[in-house]
């Protein structure tokens, strides 16, 4: 998804929260139906990913040739088998692990680069701002999906390449958000106090500004997890980026959508899985924004 940055809650930045206030935030999140549903969906898939070896009744790549005659759900294969006789429950569980390992790492990497860029651009300003924002403009003007196709077709399938490609394309939009927050927070009295004490610019950026920008960044991070899940699914569906043997939800659809008219369950089930996870991330973000807006 190439479309720009999400909407930030007004005035959610900058108020330092004590520990108990964070617990109160969690409590309010659980009481909003939207936020609670989002949290439940995400928690469900995280649990599936964590316990994949216990949940999966079969090896994810094991072929049950007897099931090929009738791959629909049965007592042995609860959700049926795919075009190669592989158990769908097992592939779904291991696929949850694939996506929930790659997506957080890619988002964290994008944040590491984006926060650094945004803090430098917003706090130092001047030439650093111009240079970094122009660089972001160039990267953001490039259609993401075409970039993925060219880069990943060239470097071949590997999880590392996918993470790098996603981090590289997401970092500039994180940088823009962090830059905006930095410009706002730089005028706060506690930043001026830190400067007067003679703290270094690095200290001011990473200890005074960044922690106080976390409210909007957590909401954005949640939305970005959703986008990145879609991106990873799309790359799997296009057969780019992820090694074909690792079960991944997009790849499961790619392998089976040609058989949709005969055995729709093979592609409908992984489609439902990825959709529910993305909905989970996005509802969670919406719940968090609502809670932050109440304060």
């Amino acid at each position: 998804m190439s479309t720009g940055s999400p909407i930030l809650p007004p005035g959610a930045a900058g108020e330092p929260l004590p520990r108990t206030a964070e617990l109160a935030t969690l409590w309010r999140l659980l009481r909003s139906p939207v936020g609670a549903l989002g949290l439940a969906l995400v928690a469900f898939w995280v649990a599936v990913a964590l316990f994949a070896p216990l949940i999966a009744p079969f090896e994810p790549n094991a072929n049950d040739y007897l099931a090929l005659a009738d791959p629909t759900p049965s007592g042995v294969h609860w959700l049926g088998t795919d075009n190669l006789g592989r158990d769908i429950v097992s592939r779904l569980a291991w696929g949850a692990r694939t996506v929930l390992v790659i997506v957080p790492i890619a988002v964290a990497a994008a944040y590491a680069i984006g926060c650094l860029m945004g803090l430098l651009a917003g706090y130092i300003g001047g030439w650093a701002d111009t240079l970094l924002m122009r660089l972001s403009d160039v990267i953001l003007s490039f259609p993401v999906i075409i970039l993925y196709m060219i880069v990943l077709a060239h470097f071949g399938p590997s999880a590392i390449n996918v993470i790098l490609a996603v981090a590289f394309t997401a970092a500039p939009s994180v940088a823009r958000i962090v830059r905006g927050l930095t410009l706002d927070l730089s005028n706060r009295p506690y930043v001026a106090a830190a400067r007067l004490r003679g703290e270094s610019p690095w200290y001011v950026m990473f200890v005074e500004i960044l922690p106080n920008a976390r409210g909007p960044l957590i909401v954005d991070g949640c939305l970005r997890m959703g986008y990145t899940t879609i991106a990873i699914g799309v790359l799997g569906f296009l057969g780019l980026g992820l090694p074909p043997d690792d079960p991944n939800w997009g790849g499961m659809v790619k392998d089976t959508y040609a058989l949709m008219s005969v055995y729709p369950h093979m592609s409908l089930i992984p489609c439902g899985a990825i959709t529910s996870l993305v909905i989970g991330f996005n509802l969670l973000a919406d719940g968090l924004r609502e809670v932050a807006g109440d304060e």
């Binding site: 959703g226 879609i230 699914g233 799309v234 569906f237 997009g250 659809v253 959508y257 489609c271 439902g272 990825i274 959709t275 993305v278 909905i279 991330f281 996005n282």
Partner: peptide, 8 residues
């Protein structure tokens, strides 16, 4: 609706 990937 924006949460549903296009392939899904």
């Amino acid at each position: 609706t924006t949460s549903i990937p296009e392939f899904a």
